[in-house]
Amino acid sequence: MKIQVIVNHKKIQMEVAYDEFLVDVLRRYGFNSVKRGCDTGNCGLCTIWIEGKPTLSCSTLAVRVNNKNLTTIEGIGEEAKDFAAFMVAEGAEQCGFCSPGFVMTVLAMKRELKNPTEEDIIHYLTGNLCRCTGYVGQLRAVKTYMGVA
């Protein structure tokens, strides 16, 4: 079936199967930043924004996003680079495979939380797994980026 979506400010008509998950459709249409890390909604690698809200694209059926506004990291290049620079300064990107989903969650958090505590930040980001960094370097980067002491 066909769905109509706006991905990164561009209207696209997508051909999708009734049982296809959004992560697979996005990758099929060339949005390769969106990664799949598990099949159980645990890892957060596939996080994109649907109407500005961070959402697991592996747990969202593609047909459910008909007429919706989607954002992947490709669509917010400059903002992503701003934060990524803080991660890279800490060396906290390491293999980078979890970065696209992580960056999308961090940028959503920046919009959503005003003056968060360290605890708020950890809570918000806890659905994004990383096996390389041990999280503390990422936390240093996020705190500097968010201006949290």
Binding site: V88, G96, V103
Partner: peptide, 17 residues
């Protein structure tokens, strides 16, 4: 800083799949 840091951190399509 890691040479490939910004590219991998911003989701460039560089991996096998």
């Amino acid at each position: 800083r890691k040479l490939d840091g910004m590219d991998v951190a911003t989701g460039k399509p560089l991996y096998t799949d």
